Simulated scan of single mutants.
Amino acid sequence: MTTFAFPSPSALSRRTMVGVAALAAVVCLWSSFALSTRALETTGMSMGDAAIMRFGVPAIALAPWIPRTLRHLRGEHASVIALVLLAGLPHFLLFAWGAHLTSAALTGLLVPGTVPLFVTVLLFLAFRSPIPRRRLIALGAIVAGVAVSATLTGGPAGEGGIAVLMAAGLVWAAYTIGLSRTRLDPLGVIALVSLTSLIAALVLAAAGALPSQLFSGTVDVPAWGAYALVQGVGTGMLSTACYVVAVKNLGSSITAAAGALSPVLTAVVAVPLLDEPLTVGLAVALVLIVSGVVAFALTPAGAARPPAADRRR
């Protein structure tokens, strides 16, 4: 008697499923990152305290992986390491500064929303690869959304905050490209970024460049504990690990595009949680940017990616 077995899912299907699941987690965790960063003022914590907690928790948790990660750095190009390190303290300070100047919804919209634009521009400048027309149209929608947010949603510091958030998006785009070229595994990336950022944050706080309650002896233990859970564990470890997995399985362009869907969740949750209004200008910007990233993600990426030989190198 002949028995039949159902075929197992192909390697490509498994990779796609893993990548999509990782992206879903990234969307939720990025939303919590934007909300908790915007709410930083209400906790009484300073930016230096937040940075120490954000990177200190994963650095301590992943301490056993640090020696192995440092050994693996010998095979990495210095430029790739520099790009990966941008995801640490540089991005966090820009993100927190922009959140302070704007709103949670706008923070959650502009940073991930502009990443696909900057990734495409950086890849074009580096590899001169042609950009499909549909992606150009999608990127045009993103640019229009940014312009709307700059003109219709700001307060007195709105434009400055938007510029800072766009700088944070550019930094994250550079990190995304470096992430796609590094040989480090997800835990190695988190360990490296967290350790270097923690050291830098402690040095800046001790020197007085970053205000910190840690060095003044006025630590609010409940606030630090809650922030350690949301930022240290959620953003510092889980979101970074999921983002690395998504990039490895889906590619940098698609991951950057789909990750921009987190603003929808952020804008909705910010209304009851932070009492932020969903204005007409923000709604228009949200529709333009989200529709742009969806169209971007649905466009085949083959023509926009660097040649295979360059990717291997």
Score class of each variant (00 low, 15 high):
V284H: 13
P300L: 12
A285K: 01
I142V: 15
L83C: 10
V247H: 10
G140M: 08
A21W: 10
A21K: 04
A283L: 04
D275S: 11
P58Q: 02
A304H: 06
A223T: 05
N249R: 12
G292S: 07
P112K: 01
E76K: 05
S79Q: 15
A25Y: 06
V247R: 06
V121M: 12
P112N: 09
F118Q: 08
H77L: 12
G236I: 03
A63T: 07
S252A: 11
G225F: 10
A105E: 14
I289F: 09
R74Q: 13
L139D: 08
V84M: 07
P112Q: 13
L122N: 08
G232F: 05
V294R: 03
M166D: 12
G292H: 06
L117P: 04
F127P: 00
M53N: 06
L265M: 08
C242E: 00
G208H: 07
T2P: 14
V294M: 10
A285G: 14
H100D: 02
P211K: 13
L214Y: 11
G251Q: 11
V164T: 13
A200L: 02
F95G: 03
S13T: 14
A241N: 05
A283P: 05
P64S: 02
L238A: 11
A51P: 03
W97E: 13
V111R: 00
V171K: 08
L123N: 13
V221T: 12
S180Q: 02
P90Q: 11
F127G: 07
L35F: 04
G251R: 11
T279D: 09
G75D: 15
F92T: 01
F55S: 02
G217S: 13
E159D: 11
G178R: 00
A174I: 03
S149C: 13
F118L: 08
